[in-house]
Design a binder for these strands. Structure first.
Lengths: 338, 338
DNA sequence: TTGAAAGCGCTAACAT
DNA sequence: ATGTTAGCGCTTTCAA
């Protein structure tokens, strides 16, 4: 193992100068900087993270907490955050809360306590009061993506605006019988996935002079399968059939498309379908959607965290940059049948 | 911060004893062990990972290297490995190679070198000669999942057996015109996804006295979309249409199902379809598949790694436990049309 | 079985 | 701008 002393010796300076030159903390003459850099390169020197952490209290490591990994949104956020962190020289430690209760507890009681991370990014996490407490007691900066956490700076999509846009798109096409598949409440209890997109939908309808009909509202679990079953109910009922469905996620919307097909309905001729997400599968299915950009959200969270970690060193982030989203119109929506 | 000294004082022993009692290295009397444990619990003491790493050279942290995250197989392996590692008290650092070339290099040159991990698990990684060298120079145990790496113990599905089973299932149903969608070579160049499942398919055919027809072979990129386009070609061609398709992945197989539907073909009446994976969507689509279990593969890799890390402490792993797989018959396969 | 003490490799006062 | 040096909190000889 090549140590800082080896570099110092080769560069003909003290270890302190090497440390300063390589870390960028403290002033070093150009000449010294040059010698140090050369020596370090020649020796393939990389600081030992444990030694550095122990001495400085900084770890150059950030924790990423997710409810689980096998969901497009979560993985995308993680991917975006991970790449951004790497660019800042940070490692990423993954905390997956999908295990047993005991395991989940140990994340808070043991893993977070061992001084391995400088900060945390939580993704769509629904935390208990105790967990939030422990998170704060941890004393390191925390940034959340998706779903508010008490006392934590969180990035959340403007659900009202997004669902209002989706609904308005259908209204503008001339639809009046618009159904909505939202998330079920008990789903929201486990991890935070917005179940409150219903509000924007109803507002948009009301603004258009339409009273939301309860029989046009249904809930599912955000998956293709869930959306499929909900849509079957909505479309198969002998009541006046809706001419459009707005689903709270692309996966559910894809489920709707498949359900419509199985019922012999043609999309969009007989039924228009719109989702929210910009899921990787949405293009293939020709799904109109309001795209959100989870990778960007992850990267954005990193920016904020970096500001908290090394104040002043990074460009200031406006306190509340809203998260971006775009209506992407494809072939699953059109004017309603005459 | 509560330190080892606080615990030692409270327990009335030396820091050395505390260390021994808590780590399990070195003998400690039952009485001392008890006192230490109590004191540690009372004080909410958790060892500082950097201090411990610096002193011992062990980090209790394992690196997980993936080509990228947004693919069912990779995430599932990561999830399985992560949970298993947590149970052993190990943290997981995620190295995602999906970024730019420079970023990919920095993983090997910087991130791996900073002494933060005790070992590495690679997932479906295709590494250059230099990268493999660096990995070995790193001097820590490496275990691979999916795709062989020179000099690295790797877990790989028996592709021959798996594709032979899939093909045999179709043969046993009476199919003789069986097409195969494999992975494209250039896809394999980037990250390792088995493109050699063709062999088992052809062997099975030959054993049944059937000569593989080149026009029944096609390749795609393992996605739904790729499978869809390949299937359209296979099924839309004016040649004698195959009565069954064996796709190298469930996502491609799902693409086949959708393509068949769009062509007005009924699955399985007109065309039988089978995949490989046991993908989370396979059940919904009624897809017959040869399921593999990526979470288990991840957990299995951890077992092997633990043995390498702390030899003797964990149950011995037979040198070559084959990875499990199962034929799961659903509604996408049946006897061929008369 | 236990304790004393010497580091592990680095950073950050402090002094120059 | 640079060097000296005292720790950071733990593990691990070594001696008892």
């Amino acid at each position: 193992m090549v140590s800082i002393e080896d570099v110092a010796r080769r560069a003909g300076v003290s270890t302190a100068t090497v440390s300063r030159a390589l870390s960028g903390n403290g002033r070093v003459s150009a000449a010294a900087h040059q010698k140090v850099t050369e020596a370090a390169t020649a020796l393939d020197y990389v600081v030992s993270s444990s030694a550095s952490s122990l001495a400085s209290g900084r770890t150059k490591n950030v924790g990423l907490m997710v409810p689980y990994l096998t969901r497009w949104f979560f993985t995308s956020v993680v991917e975006g955050a991970q790449q951004a962190l790497m660019r800042h020289g940070y490692d990423v430690t993954l905390y997956n809360l999908s295990g047993s209760v005991a395991e989940r507890e140990s994340v808070f009681d043991v893993f977070l306590q061992r001084q391995r991370i400088d900060g945390i990014i939580t993704v769509s996490l629904k935390l208990s009061g105790t967990e939030v407490e422990r998170l704060h007691a941890f004393g390191k900066p925390v940034v959340g993506v998706g779903g508010p956490i008490d006392g934590v700076r969180t990035l959340t999509l403007d659900d009202d605006a997004v669902s209002s846009i989706a609904t308005s798109h259908l209204l503008a096409l001339g639809h009046t019988r618009i159904a909505h598949i939202g998330g079920s409440e008990d789903f929201d209890l486990e991890f935070h996935i917005p179940t409150n997109r219903r509000h924007g939908y109803e507002m948009a309808l009301r603004n258009a002079g339409i009273t939301p009909r309860p029989e046009y509202f249904s809930t599912a679990d955000f998956t293709i399968e869930g959306g499929y079953h909900a849509a079957k109910q909505l479309l198969g009922s002998p009541l006046e059939r809706p001419t459009a469905i707005f689903a709270s996620s692309d996966e559910m919307a894809i489920g709707c498309i498949l359900a419509a097909r199985d019922l012999g309905l043609v999309v969009p001729r007989d039924i228009s379908i719109i989702g929210i997400d910009g899921h990787e599968l949405s293009e293939f299915f020709g799904l109109t959607t309001v795209a959100q950009y989870p990778e960007k959200q992850g990267a954005h969270a990193v920016k904020i965290l970096m500001n908290l970690l090394v104040p002043g060193k990074h460009p200031e982030i406006p306190e509340n940059t809203p998260l971006g989203y775009d209506l992407v119109v494809r072939s699953s929506t059109s004017r309603p049948p005459e």
